[in-house]
Every structure is written in structure tokens, then in C-alpha cells.
């Protein structure tokens, strides 16, 4: 419990017609999130997979109090953020601890100059000017956008805008950053840039990263994968455990990495291959062994 940065117990949420939360569980509208219990350790790199509308974004928004659960408890850094006595000041403290980067880079940049946008969070926290300056410069450095500090955001590429958005979150010095499909609208280059920053933050600054995505190859790089389907937490395990369940993933409309899929197919035809290889190298090794043996049937 001590080293859990996020802990949920029996978390449930229901949207009403207007898209806001309702006070009681309704029989008509299916819950967006249904009885989810999960603990996330400090410094973990987590991927959340699920198809569109599975409830994974709702899950994220419950973690920084954008939405309030109708049932269950959320603990951030040991504090119960769902208790009644939670004050507004405490709420903003939670939001500065749990940062969030969204899908559409355009819709999260506020200012007309890159560095002023990065400063937006620290400004809201009421930090002294010198500290804001320092954080803005550091954050832009981390995402490699320092030379664009005085540019207008609308002139940047999608990947660059998203990096500015990340800098804006880093500048608040969060302990957790949630990436809510932050790579979905980017081209492969932009996606790679964002993914690299994500992993660097996790590795070097020990920031807990939660990457909500539907790219299997991104999830395969995480320490741990959560699979949410129809509001329920279906699977929770290492990428290796999750992606070897090829059949199960297909049944809920998801996929495994191509190499794993191939090994699964071969194995189900009776060939002697491991089915828990997920990286390109592992799959290559497995297939090389198979071909080298001349394909002895299991």
C-alpha cells in the first residue's frame, strides 16, 4: 500500500444523457465503468487497452477528479480523493500530481506562444515567477522543443504540438502522467517521438506512466497491461501474459503483435513454438529455432 501511487477499489461510473455523472446506478444506461479494482505502483509503466468506448478514458478521468465515481474509492498517493470532506485546494493538488495528455493536440493548447502555454499549469499553481521560468525551460528541454519556445503552436506539426502539451504537464511536476490516446492522431514519426518521451519520463524521472491506447505495439512495451472491456477490468498482467492469449483478445476485438499472432497460429496447427514471445527479436528467435529443427511436430 505504501508504494502505491494509485489505488482503486470497486470503482464504478455511469454517464447520463448529458454525459455527466448520475447519482445512482441506473438500470437503463450501462455503466461506463463497472466495479474496477486496481493498484498501481510508483514508477510503473502501464498500458491500458480496450476498444473505442470500452471505458478506458472514463477510468482515466476518475483518477484526477474530472469525474466523480458513483461507487468505490480512489486513493492517490495514499489519500482518499473520493471522501466527502475533500476540499477544492486538495482537488487541485491531486490534479497537479496526476497530469493528463489528451488525444487531440489542438484542443489542449491554450496560449498563442509555446512557452506561455507550458507556463499555464505552473501559473495556475501560483508558483513564483523564477520557478515558473525554470520549470518551463526544463520541460521544453525534456521534450526537445526548447528552440520552439517563442513559436506559435498552430504552426507546429501534430507531434510537436503533442510534445508541447506534454511539456505543459511536466512543468507541473506530476507523479503520474496519463496519456489518453495521445498518439492516436499522430503520424508514425510523431507517435514515435511521443512514445520515446513517455518512456524517458518513466525511466529517468521515475514518473508513473499510464498509456491508454489501442496500438498493440505500444502496449507491448509497457511493464504491465490492463485490458478494459465494456467497463470491466478483464485482464491485468505483463504484456507477455496478456498477448499470449491471442484467442481471447480476438474475441473482444483486440489483437496481439503480428509475431505473436503468427506463433499462435503455428502452435495451434501443432508446431512446437512458444506462444508467449512478443518482441520482434523473440519471435524471430522462436521461428528460427522452428525452421532450424526442420519443423518437428510437437
Amino acid at each position: 500500500m505504501e508504494n502505491c501511487i494509485i489505488k482503486n477499489e470497486n470503482l464504478s461510473f455511469v454517464y447520463d444523457d448529458e454525459g455527466t455523472s448520475v447519482s445512482a446506478v441506473s438500470a437503463v444506461i450501462p455503466p461506463a465503468l463497472d466495479d474496477v479494482t486496481v493498484s498501481i505502483k510508483k514508477g510503473e509503466y502501464i498500458a491500458v487497452l480496450g476498444h473505442n468506448g470500452s471505458g478506458k478514458s472514463t477510468f482515466a478521468k476518475l483518477l484526477n477528479m474530472i469525474l466523480k465515481p458513483i461507487n468505490g474509492r480512489v486513493y492517490i498517493d495514499g489519500k482518499d480523493i473520493t471522501c466527502e470532506e475533500f476540499t477544492e485546494d486538495e482537488m487541485f493538488e491531486v490534479r497537479s500530481k496526476v497530469g493528463m495528455v489528451f488525444q487531440n493536440p489542438d484542443n489542449q493548447l491554450v496560449a498563442t506562444v509555446v512557452e506561455e502555454d507550458v507556463a499555464f499549469g505552473p501559473e495556475n499553481l501560483g508558483l513564483p515567477r523564477a520557478e515558473i521560468r525554470k520549470r518551463v525551460d526544463e520541460a521544453l528541454d525534456v521534450v526537445g522543443m526548447a528552440e520552439y519556445a517563442n513559436h506559435a503552436p498552430h504552426k507546429l506539426s501534430g507531434g510537436q504540438k503533442q510534445r508541447v502539451a506534454i511539456a505543459g504537464i511536466i512543468a507541473m511536476k506530476p507523479k503520474v502522467i496519463i496519456f489518453d490516446e495521445s498518439t492516436a492522431m499522430l503520424d508514425p514519426l510523431g507517435r514515435r517521438e511521443v512514445l520515446e518521451i513517455m518512456e524517458k519520463l518513466n525511466r529517468e524521472d521515475n514518473i508513473t506512466v499510464i498509456n491508454i491506447t489501442h496500438y498493440m505495439e505500444e502496449a507491448a512495451r509497457a511493464d504491465r497491461v490492463l485490458i478494459i472491456n465494456d467497463g470491466k477490468l478483464l485482464l491485468d498482467g505483463s504484456p507477455r501474459e496478456i498477448f499470449s492469449k491471442v484467442d481471447f483478445l480476438h474475441s473482444i476485438g483486440l489483437e496481439s503483435p503480428q509475431g505473436t499472432e503468427l506463433l499462435f497460429e503455428l502452435s495451434s496447427l501443432g508446431y512446437d513454438v512458444p506462444t508467449d514471445a512478443i518482441s520482434e527479436d523473440e519471435c524471430y528467435d522462436a521461428l528460427k529455432t522452428l525452421l532450424g529443427k526442420g519443423g518437428k511436430l510437437a
Binding site: 474530472i66 489528451f102 484542443n107 489542449q108 491554450v110 499555464f120 515558473i132 505543459g168
Partner: peptide
Amino acid sequence: FKRADELAIAMECRCYRGDKNRTKLVK
């Protein structure tokens, strides 16, 4: 409207609460 909605949430996530307790980078 969708943009406005998303921007509002993004701003809240970045601790925006009006000018209460707010400082500025450029003074």
C-alpha cells in the same frame, strides 16, 4: 463545441481555477 469541451477539461487538468492564486510567467 467539442473543442471547447475538450479544452475546458484540459484546462481543468492543468489546475485552472480562474485567477485565484494565479501567477504569471511574464510580468
